[in-house]
Nucleic acid binder design. Structure first.
Lengths: 190, 190
DNA sequence: GGTGTACTATACAGATCGGTCTAGTTCCAG
DNA sequence: CTGGAACTAGACCGATCTGTATAGTACACC
């Protein structure tokens, strides 16, 4: 068992594999990281990976589903107590700023994943799901905010959100998220 | 020579390799596409690739440098005749909208490339170069536009630009570029 | 005609890829 | 005590990867 693997000591093989995939796939890319690197970091036998997930593709899928659920949970936890639609919208950007400030932030996992998969991949479906969820949330909040054109506002906020993540990925700082938030403040009424 | 390769008929081996790399790397990713696929589409012998570029990494680098120069040329050609800083800023978004409307648009090549390379790669340098160029351009235009805080405006426009490209990549339409342009219209004075 | 350059075709090397298989260990439940 | 589930270690498979080496072709220039 590697040094890295010791961190996951008490977890099941499945959880350890997901934790390792979560780090390696996100940091270095789906195709750059091989099965061997993952099982080494997870401290798990190769047979366990194939018993649990069946294939690398399935592990990739599980990794992305986990990312989607984690982000959803973080955003909801962040904004649920906020008093207004406007505050909740800005809270979404605050949540990203927090993540972008942490070391190891590399942008949106779904954008990264979709950059290295062909058209018909199962990755695409998860990406669409998570984007649809976020757009729905923004649309709902835009409506509640009293915007004159909630649909357009939601899409503009989505562009800002995506742009902040990419700029964070490429430039390695959280400044872009503050810029995006500043623009959002101007766009959202109230 | 494959069917695809016939397109590049009159070009040198170097140009054909770059053209093939430009399609395949962009569409499917740096690590997904192997040398064999590239030389097949280029209709070129493997030895020619290694005589010309020396390694796959060097081909990747040349591909990205070509992308950078092509984009710079397109943007400059698009905005040079425009009458004001404001028009030139919006022209940058118009240029992207045009590209995003073409079939096969998959977002920013540099974002895609950086999503599948480790930290210390030579890809990083080209990405920084092209981003620095665009940010400089936006900063200069923001200053000329008479904005009260040109630096902040430039960075906000950069977020919008990045976001538009990503949304185009993920959603497969040019609508996001129009949304980004609409926000830019609000931000730039005049 | 002869020489060099640019190129092609293809076999090959060594590493690594995803994935399978066997054999053995640990440990809890009946 | 026994059986089964969960897991480990590692050999192994065929395919594919980047890169090299060999041998030969087409053509321009002197």
């Amino acid at each position: 068992m590697s040094e890295q693997a010791a961190v996951y000591e008490h977890l099941s093989a499945r959880a350890r594999l997901l934790a390792a995939a979560n780090e390696l796939f996100y940091e270095e890319g789906l195709n750059t990281v091989g099965i061997d690197r993952i099982i080494e970091r997870a401290g798990v036998a190769k047979a366990s990976l194939y018993n649990t997930f069946g294939s690398k593709d399935a592990l990739v899928h599980a990794y992305l589903v986990g990312r989607h659920e984690a982000r959803r949970a973080r955003i909801i936890a962040r904004i649920e107590a906020l008093p207004s639609a406007r505050a909740r919208i800005l809270g979404i950007f605050d949540e990203m700023e927090q993540r972008a400030s942490e070391p190891g932030f590399k942008g949106c996992a779904f954008v990264r994943a979709s950059a290295e998969t062909r058209e018909g991949s199962c990755v695409k479906a998860v990406c669409e799901e998570t984007r649809a969820w976020l757009l729905d949330l923004l649309r709902s909040l835009a409506k509640d905010s009293g915007a004159s054109d909630p649909e357009a506002l939601a899409r503009q906020l989505m562009v800002l959100y995506d742009g902040a993540a990419v700029a964070g990925q490429m430039d390695g700082d959280a400044n872009a998220t503050r810029m995006a938030r500043a623009v959002a403040e101007q766009l959202v009424p109230g």
